[in-house]
Nucleic acid binder design. Structure first.
Lengths: 234, 234
DNA sequence: CGGGCCCTTGACGTTAGTCAAAGAGCGTGG
DNA sequence: CCACGCTCTTTGACTAACGTCAAGGGCCCG
């Protein structure tokens, strides 16, 4: 069930292309911490002293606006890292981080890592690569928010869940709908209604399972909502 | 008018904290290119071979959705870099880049830079730092889109234009309203109407100038739209 | 003077948020 | 085992926000 830690860490995006030996000393000094669902790992604005790697469970990164509105920035699972900003001196976390399930995290001291970076260009490059990849994901999210409807965003969400599948496939929603909604930038009520509207292109959602009649049909729908809405009204 | 190139490059975020000598050879080999307004610098999906630094003018990064919808991801000015993804091997640009004014860009060959990175940890760190900072900006944008109204987003936009000013201040809108609207994720019509609604908190927009009666009042408005809308209807 | 572009305005439709209510699990304690 | 309270989810009715369409004014430039 729980993969050996070394495996997870070695395959983590931020350490891809780094020889294991270089980071082994840092890792061995890093404690593994257990968190219960709902626990806060760090707050937005807090001085950043640690970087974390998710070993098990789900962690959400979020921002609170001045009027108490929560925007979920990312939902992380095994192998993902967060708090990378900690490698820079005197910076604060720009998001809050909270466990949305029971979770095990590797907590890496930022100073340790910063020192390791000084000595090893490959490590710096690896972190850079991970950071750039992360940017791509953020850009994708921005694009979606700016130019897609909520139905399209959910469609895309489902498509990413059923990676390379074709034809019919069933996916398990990885966390509760409140969180999915927040992540996609909408309210739970809207999520519910949007799922409903996906029925017109062969998607049924039952409890935490989504049954996708035809992946291709869903993809067509997401990429060109227009015709479909015409069809819907007909 | 046009600052010496060295100054701009040296102060660019991506080369902050790098000794000038390390990058001098790379820079000296990099051509300065002139672009006219409306010219495309690179397309989304194109193989990334160069990284650019803006010396003068404005460049927009954008993404096209499958149905021809353009989402503006960033608007860059002097000292900003883009196309950093080029330092990774075999990657493609994740956005298109286009000049929105006449512009001068320093075009840095990605291989050159990648080699320089291999030799110099500080350079990798510097790029990492810039990338992380960029992420912060993207996260901020995401937060805004997910939890703020268009009026609030414009308010925030104006606030960032009048940096540390207090009391009354007048700012020049740095580019045309079509672009501002696209950047903030709305249509020009909505932008126009939103400007209008800012009149209730002492902001007037005439042509390309915004006259802000009271920066504090605007800030209050942006941070807590709720009371203001109550007041408005009273 | 005329054409094109940017910007604004109005009327209207669609989308998503709000408020309220009710049903469906689920764990707890009787 | 059942009843209870809890949270999550769905649904409906309503409202507010934003996009769309269409028209018109101002401005620049040929």
């Amino acid at each position: 069930m729980t993969k050996p830690i070394d495996d997870i860490v070695r395959n983590a995006e931020i350490f891809r292309s780094v020889c294991v030996d270089c980071i082994a000393p840092v890792i061995s000094r890093s404690p593994i911490r257990e968190f219960r669902r709902g626990t806060s790992i760090h707050l937005q604005g807090e001085r950043a002293h640690s970087l974390y790697i998710v070993l098990d469970g789900c962690v959400k990164l979020y921002r609170m606006s001045s009027m108490g509105n929560e925007a979920v920035i990312a939902v992380l699972t095994r192998g993902d890292a967060f708090g990378e900003i900690a490698v820079l001196p005197d910076e604060a976390y720009t998001t809050g981080a909270e466990c949305v399930t029971q979770a095990r995290l590797l907590q890496i001291d930022a100073r340790d890592l910063a020192q390791a970076i000084e000595c090893d260009t490959r490590l710096a490059q690896s972190l850079l690569a991970a950071s750039l990849k992360r940017q791509v994901a953020l850009v994708h999210q921005l694009e979606q928010l700016k130019s897609q409807s909520s139905v399209q965003r959910i469609g895309d969400f489902l498509l990413r869940l059923c990676k390379n599948e074709v034809g019919t496939c069933t996916v398990v929603l990885p966390y509760d709908k409140v969180l999915i909604a927040a992540w996609l930038g909408m309210k739970p009520e809207s999520l519910s209604r949007s799922f409903r509207r996906l029925q017109t292109c062969g998607v049924r959602v039952v409890k935490d399972r989504a049954i996708i009649g035809s992946v291709d049909r869903l993809r067509d729908f997401v990429e060109a909502d227009r015709e479909q809405s015409a069809a819907r009204s007909a």
